[in-house]
Design a protein around this nucleic acid. Structure first.
Length: 477
RNA sequence: GGCCCCAUCGUCUAGAGGCCCAGGACACGGCCCUCUCAAGGCUGAAACACGGGUUCGAAUCCCGUUGGGGCCA
């Protein structure tokens, strides 16, 4: 019963990600998808997307679209799946019924018409004896031809799940019961659909959340009853909230799109998710290629991990610092629009702007906040700073600056710095005095990228306009 | 309640019996750099849940306890 040997080139590996479209893509699901995708890409196998939409009341088209969008944003592409038909459970009903019938024919499943009351009584009795509830098997030999279809489970022995992450996990058959494959109303159950889907899609490795580990022995018994080879299993731990319970809405944002909308870079999100439960020595950042090359399901940790937004944001900033201005310029556009700011048409200019901003925020949303002044004139001046700098001497200094800036031949950072240093010396001041005065006039605040770069990017006309506006503002006061 | 999983700094983790009086990263404190804010550099504090074994030697193996989580109900 040792796991089959893994080789680097396991091109026949077929893995799948099978979300239920009952909401947006959760970060836990995204990590499961990522691990599957990495497994497939590492081994040169196939990554399949399957939509588990049997819960018709909660599954929607919008959710399918949203999941597809989130996976795409993360850069996870699938080799088989939507929009190709046949990858949604609702399209596969005949398959479930075919397989159910086969199990009946082979004598591995039987119909049961026990009432809810009968079952309840059994359940209560089991609890009274301090035991796992297990269906009595009353209908096993009755030869019914209708009712709920149950899988006949052996009374003796045990099933071992040879988990790639946890190692062998043994489940005694006496803890398992003849579970329901198809309900009385004809609808197949979740566990049965999964088995039939994984069998018919020829899945070789089932990588999924730890919450399914308890279902696995039941599924293995179903594979065996059907006469199919059992795939390998790997159960990935859950992502937890700060209180160590399963991450949910009450812990804050949980959907992938929420982080996208918060301006997290997609590569940061993927890197973060990969590092949550997986590691490679002391390395924190991995390129996509490194991830594919280094990822090994056996290195995935078996314990749960708390989702840490602060570290995700740190990674996002690290990726921004390393991103080319041109790429950030593309990425930031929707965020500018979202903040109600004009979206510049001059992309090379925007790219240079982004180069001055990229290490000053953790997300694109923060970048827009700190760089707002590039796109709109200040609507107000920071009061404390205004009190300090917008004084009588302040206006005189502004006037001196305006006069010189009007005539400086080159409006470049180095020329501007030279001008400022000379004027500083002439007036017997420190550079910080003029720099902060200018910063306040031009940005409305006392914090910004290096002031000479800011002025150069704003250009002579805009700089002068803002300086004059500041002077007018002081004089009016 | 039954079954199953898990347990190293606040958090993510390295560690597969001696290399560890436990390493890295985030966050936090200090110093330096500096036109501001960042970024950067240096630096500090911070963990093997507990109790038994096994072994010359255990964070690492075994058992139990406690705690957390999941599945079923």
């Amino acid at each position: 019963m040792s796991p089959r040997p893994e080789t680097a080139a396991n091109t026949s590996a077929r893995v799948r990600f099978a979300p239920s479209p009952t909401g947006h893509l959760h970060v836990g699901g995204a990590r499961t998808a990522l691990f599957n995708w990495l497994y497939a890409r590492h081994h040169g196998g196939a990554f399949i997307l399957r939509i588990e939409d049997t819960d018709r009341s909660r599954s929607t088209e919008e959710n399918i679209h949203s999941i597809v969008e989130a996976l795409t944003w993360l850069g996870l592409d699938w080799d088989e799946g939507p929009p190709t038909p046949g990858y949604r459970q609702t399209e596969r009903m005949e398959l479930y019924h075919e397989h159910a019938l086969r199990l009946v024919t082979m004598g591995r499943a039987y119909y049961c018409d026990c009432s809810a009351e009968t079952l309840d009584a059994e359940r209560k009795a089991a609890q009274a004896r301090v035991e796992t509830f297990r269906y009595s098997g009353r209908c096993r030999e009755r030869g019914l031809i209708a009712g709920a279809l149950r899988l006949r489970i052996p009374d003796e022995g045990a099933t071992v799940v040879n988990d790639l992450i946890h190692g062998p996990v043994t489940f005694e058959h006496r803890q398992l019961d003849d579970w329901i494959l198809v309900r009385t109303d004809g609808t197949p159950t979740y566990n049965f659909c999964v088995v039939v889907d994984d069998v018919t899609m020829r899945i070789t490795h089932v990588i999924r959340g730890n919450d399914h580990l308890s279902n696995t022995p039941k599924q293995i018994l179903c594979y065996e009853a059907l006469g199919y080879a059992v795939p390998e299993f790997a159960h990935v731990s859950m992502i937890l909230g700060a209180d160590r319970s399963r991450l949910s809405k009450r812990h804050g944002a949980t959907s992938v799109q929420a982080f996208r909308d918060a301006g997290i870079l997609p590569e940061a999100m993927a890197n973060y998710l990969a590092r949550l439960g997986w590691s490679h020595g002391d390395q924190e950042m991995f390129s996509r290629g490194e991830l594919i090359e280094l990822f090994d399901i056996k290195d995935v940790a078996s314990s749960g991990a708390i989702f840490d937004l602060v570290k995700l944001e740190w990674l996002s900033q690290e990726y921004m610092k390393r991103s080319a201005g041109a790429r950030l310029a593309e990425l930031v556009r929707p965020f500018l629009a979202g903040a109600g700011l004009p979206v510049p048409a001059d992309m090379p200019w925007l790219a240079r702007v982004m180069e001055t901003l990229r290490e000053r925020g953790k997300t694109l949303v923060e970048i827009v906040e700190v760089g707002r002044f590039y796109f709109a004139r200040p609507s107000a001046y920071e009061p404390k700073a205004a009190q300090k700098f917008f004084t009588r001497e302040g206006t005189a200094r502004l006037a001196a600056l305006i006069e010189r800036l009007e005539t400086v031949p080159e409006f470049t950072p180095s020329a501007l710095e030279k001008l400022y240093r000379e004027l500083t010396a002439t007036l017997g001041l420190k550079l910080v005095d003029l720099a902060q005065l200018t910063r306040l006039a031009v940005t409305g605040t006392t914090a910004s990228p290096p002031i000479f770069e800011v002025l150069a990017l704003l250009g002579r006309d805009e700089t002068l306009a803002r300086l004059r506006a500041a002077r007018a503002h002081v004089e009016a006061a």
